[in-house]
């Protein structure tokens, strides 16, 4: 019976698990937003939770034969098994408030949502597909940044995805970037910050460098709330911070405004 109860990592209150699930994985006591999987995200965003998955046939390769305490190829297998996904992003299409859209949702549980060749390729395909089919794009970011195990190939995905977004912009098609906890490194330094609208969930860690790296560099304690969504909003980097309960409604409204659909 123990797994009926859980503790909120933020307010430390003991909570009935079902209450959290019923509340879209938000703590009913302190409004802490728990991390969601890519599929949960897609389910919450699309009308009636219905969508078609796209670009499923792309698989990662251990091209550098990278090996730290474990082989990268092994890590990939383990993460695929654990998440039942092929990689750290899921592409989908479906209707949001009746509006057809292409969505890429990142999966943090897959190697920290890191971006290697496959994530870069899938995000780029989502954007290119939107260009061809003249649809809006949403990317839900949740990532520690570029994937180290694919070396500079991962770094190049920043350019690949950003260049695709430049094309989307030339086609005058909207891109809404949704930043969730955490969005850092190479993902922030490419598509996550390039939205026509940049929207974040509350209390999400968003930044270029990770807080530990900054602390070690400047040898000072970081101010409270540093790199949280609200901090970025204050510094002009986000259009708004929107709680999960209102996110879908907000996205529908934003799409209608951007597409001029009253």
């Amino acid at each position: 019976m123990t797994n009926l109860w859980t503790r909120c990592n933020n307010c430390q209150k003991i909570l009935y698990k079902q209450d959290i699930l019923d509340n879209q994985h938000v703590c009913p006591a302190c409004n802490f937003h728990f991390r969601l999987s890519a599929l949960e995200r897609l389910g919450m965003l699309f009308d009636e939770g219905k969508y078609t998955r796209l670009d499923e046939g792309i698989f990662p390769v251990d091209v550098l034969r990278f090996e730290d305490s474990q082989k990268y190829s092994q890590r990939l297998q383990e993460n695929q098994k654990k998440t039942e996904l092929t990689e750290a992003v899921v592409n989908a299409r479906g209707k949001i408030g009746g509006i057809e859209a292409i969505v890429s949702a990142m999966e943090f549980a897959f190697l920290g949502g890191s971006m290697g060749s496959v994530v870069g390729e899938k995000v780029t395909r989502a954007i290119e597909r939107a260009c061809v089919e003249r649809l809006p794009v949403l990317i839900i970011s949740c990532s520690g940044g570029a994937r180290m195990q694919e070396g500079a190939l991962s770094l190049m995905q920043l350019m690949k995805t950003s260049a695709a977004l430049a094309r989307l912009g030339q086609e005058r098609l909207p891109f809404i970037s949704i930043l969730t906890d955490p969005t850092t490194g190479g993902v922030t330094a490419s598509y996550a910050m390039l939205g026509d609208l940049n929207i974040a969930e509350p209390n999400a860690l968003i930044g270029f460098a990770g807080p530990r790296v900054i602390e070690q560099t400047i040898k000072e304690k970081l101010p409270k709330g540093f790199q949280q969504s609200e901090f970025l909003l204050k510094h002009g980097m986000l259009d708004d911070v929107v709680g999960r309960k209102n996110l879908r409604a907000y996205i529908i409204k934003a799409l209608r405004l951007l597409l001029n659909r009253y």
């Binding site: 920043l158 350019m159 950003s162 260049a163 977004l165 430049a166 094309r167 912009g169 030339q170 922030t188 330094a189 490419s190 598509y191 996550a192 910050m193 390039l194 930044g207 270029f208 460098a209 990770g210 790296v213 900054i214 560099t217 400047i218 970081l222 101010p223 540093f226 790199q227 901090f231 510094h235 002009g236 980097m237």
Partner: peptide, 26 residues
């Protein structure tokens, strides 16, 4: 690398890099 500092984050280090990539593309 790009500087990992408080001011850099406040002024949008990630946005500055991302925007350069997008702009250089065209």
């Amino acid at each position: 690398g790009a500087y990992p500092g408080i001011g850099a984050e406040e002024r949008g280090q990630a946005e500055a890099i991302a925007n350069n990539l997008k702009e250089i593309a065209t």
